[in-house]
Structures are given as C-alpha cells and as structure tokens.
Design a protein around this nucleic acid. Sequence first.
DNA 1: GTCAGACTGTGGTCTGACCACAGGGTCTGA
DNA 2: TCAGACCCTGTGGTCAGACCACAGTCTGAC
Lengths: 249, 249
Amino acid sequence: MSDQRAWQVVLGRIESDLAAGVLKPGDHLAPERALATELGVGRSSVREAVRVLEVLGLVRTQTGSGPSSGAVITAAPSDGMSVLMRLQVAAQGFGVDDVVRTRLLLETAVVGELAALAGPDLAEADTLLAAMDDDGHTSAEFLALDAQFHLALAAAAGNQVVTATMAGLRTSIERYVLIGAARLSSWAPVATRLRAEHRSIVAAVRAHDADGARRHLHDHITGYYAQTFAPVPSSPDPTRPVPHPSKES
Amino acid sequence: MSDQRAWQVVLGRIESDLAAGVLKPGDHLAPERALATELGVGRSSVREAVRVLEVLGLVRTQTGSGPSSGAVITAAPSDGMSVLMRLQVAAQGFGVDDVVRTRLLLETAVVGELAALAGPDLAEADTLLAAMDDDGHTSAEFLALDAQFHLALAAAAGNQVVTATMAGLRTSIERYVLIGAARLSSWAPVATRLRAEHRSIVAAVRAHDADGARRHLHDHITGYYAQTFAPVPSSPDPTRPVPHPSKES
DNA sequence: GTCAGACTGTGGTCTGACCACAGGGTCTGA
DNA sequence: TCAGACCCTGTGGTCAGACCACAGTCTGAC
C-alpha cells in the first residue's frame, strides 16, 4: 500500500487539496522545494507531479519571482484533452474513424441544443464566419478558423466538458485534416461550400430548427471528410438526436 | 525553437516516433539513460516526459530486467481520460452538471447505436446484470458493477473514443456518486429499481427499439441523479420524453 | 524623487550517486 | 547430466546538490 511512488504521493496531495477546496483556480502551488520538504520526497519527484499537472492543463508554471511566478492553478481542460487525444491517436489507442464519429455525435448534439435555446450567443461564431469570408486564407488558415467556429458553437451551448472534448478531438486529427486539405486540387471551391454550410447551420440554429441544424451539421462534416479522407466513417443519423438539450440554466 | 523545454523535446520525439510508426503498441521505449544521451538532455527531463506518458495511459513502466521491464507502449485511453477528468472536476474546470449531461449525451447515443446493430455483443453486459442480482452487495459494490455495465454497453458499440470518455466521466464523479448513495435511507429498493431499468434498456436494444432504448437509458440516469444528488443537474421536461423528430431506419 | 544595480526566490536542468528489482548467466553440488 | 543457489547486469525510482535564467523587489547613490 505504501509502496506508492513518490510522485504519486505529491499528485495525491495536490488532488486532495483541490477536492477539499484548499486549492482553487488562481491559487499558487507551494514552491517545489517547500513541497518536497513537506512531503519528505525529493524535488525531482515533485517536479514529475507538477509536470503531469501542467500537461493536463491544470497548472501553468512560470520562472522568475513575483506574484505571477511559480505554479498557478489554471483549469484549462482543452489543453489536456488535446494532448491526451493527440497522443492516443498517434499510439493507435484511438482510431481516426472513432474520433470523427464522436465529433459528429457531439456536434450534432451541440447544434440541436443551441437551436432549443431562447437566445444563443452566436457573436463569436459570427465573427469567425466573417473572418472566413476573406479570400486570402490558405487552407490551413481557413481550417484553423473553421475549428474555432465549431468550438465557438460548442462554447455557446455552455457545456465545458463537451467543449473541451471537441477541442481535443479536433486537435487529435489535425494532422490528417491538413494532409487531406493539401491533397485537394483546388481549395477555393471547397472553402466556398464550407462557408455556405456554416451559414446554413447558424441560420437553422437561429430559426430554432433543431432538426435542420443537426442535418446541416451532419452533412457538413461527413461531406468534408468524404472529400478529404478516402473512406468515410459510417455516421450516426443526424436527425436522430441525442435526447436532448437538457439545459437548465 | 530552442526555447522548447527539455522534457518537451523528449515528448515530441516520442510522439513523432509514434506517428511515424517507429513505435507501436507493445514496443519498448529506449532506456531512459540512452534516450537522455541521444537527445542531449538530462535523465530527469526524460523521466518527466515518460511520467506524462505514463499518466496519460500511453506507457507502462516496470523495474527489473528482461522483456517485460522498461517502458512499454500500451495505449490505455481510459486511464488517462479518468485522471484528466477527475482532476479537472477537482479543480473546477469541469462542473459536475456538465459531466452528467455529457454522460447522458454519450450513453443515449450508445444504446441507440447498439439497437441499430444486427447482433450486438451483450454477453459482457448480461454477465454484469447477473452479478448485480446478488443481494449481498453494498451500494459501493453495486455501483461498481453498474459502472462496468454501462461501460460494457459502450464497448459493445465499438467506439473506443466514446468508451474511454465515458470511463473518464464516470471516474470523475465517482466521489459524488458514492456520497449520494450513502445518503439514501435504504439502498435495497433503489437497487431493485436500477436492476429493472437495466433490463429494460437491454431488452429494448435486443428488440432493435432504438427510441425505447434511448428513453429508458435517459430515464434511468436522470432518475438516479434526481434521487441522489440534491440539486439535479439537468432534466429535460419529463412530459416530453425523447424527441424523435424523424424516424429512423 | 529617480533610476540603476544588487538581491532574492522561483522554476529549469544537469550530474552523479544510490537503491530495488528481476531476468539471465554461472558455478556448484548431487 | 541436471537442478538449484548465487551473482551479474541492466532497468526504472529516488534523492541531493549544484548551476542557470529569469523577474520582481529592494537598496542606495545621485
């Protein structure tokens, strides 16, 4: 039992401090040397634990002195999710097909939920749509904006878990997305179509047409993957929605 | 370029080796000392990178010598997802409400998909249902089986991303689930109801009744949370079950 | 009062030293 | 010849100590 590794002791301590509310977002972790002394472990073990927290998006470290230095609790779920999923895809723990299918699943739910909201906040999405209208973008630039657009929709729906997961999913297959775009003979017509599809989705959301939003979103994603990835993953039925916009806030 | 931290160099190298297929599941990482020399960094930096990979569920380390020792690539997405989500919930990056909502979202999709399959593999789920019939379980034991049951359904649907995510979601709120169960005046009647609900879900799946499966699953989860969490996170209007705007093949 | 310089405390990194462990090889005795 | 005890070697796990870079903060000369 007590053969727990030294870095796990440190991680456990920090986790319990978080769970107990002793540590909150914005707080500083104790200095590495102090933590090492306090827990009776070496500084290197403390560092391993902090490193894990950093990669998981829980803390941000900074050198120097003053209030902004040290390790600060900053819950940034998307970062951790991105690293995790990207590596899992690289290590073949996740298949690209499953990633795409899951993306479809989450995004259709998101737009369906959004359409059911009284006044969804689409300002961010609108800004990104406008930015994408610029014809000067390379495919990579356009796709970066596209990713932000989809993420903005998720954020508007208000579920942080879904938003972070979507960010991770997108990151995990970014490499494939870029390769796929590069294989297209010409990007301009594709961009034009994507712009139109984005607007259809947003319009359906604004019209509170949940089914339409889901359908447009579904076609948008499957269509794009069909064009850029050779084999398209079989996808969930767009109109069959996940039960629901359960929101309440 | 060189402002990249030493441990990131190591992580980057391993990731690119994974992406390039140089490293595959089952392979051994180079020994820490060798990797350090090869990349021109200290062993402690290598260790930080390996530690991250270990927590993320990508490698398993073992002391000693022989074929099973060292760091072996083992894609275990659920482990990493569990740690990540548990810590994010602890650090208030994820709200429990969002976790529950997301769980609902994924699980309804899973059972719906399952019902559409010709011959879903429910052997694992059946075994767990039988195990749950034992009246000798404490609430914690029952809930552990319950978690496995839901996970078995996800696994049967065949999407590894969804399965891993569900495992993470469940782990992240385990603490709250157990507390909630402990607050109940008596566990037996609850267990009885849960058993019946599980069987309804499985029956609907077997009958290829996707809508029914989704509805049963939805009620199962929302009902339980309504009973154990004081303030229920979300609950779609119960008078309006699950929207199935359109039919489904 | 200002501003330049030293001071201090923080993370980042490396080195070298042990330890525990487990497989594999070797030696010994039957 | 064979079995078993023994040591050897390579692996991760950990620690201690030493530097470095950095960025606030303090101090003192002007």
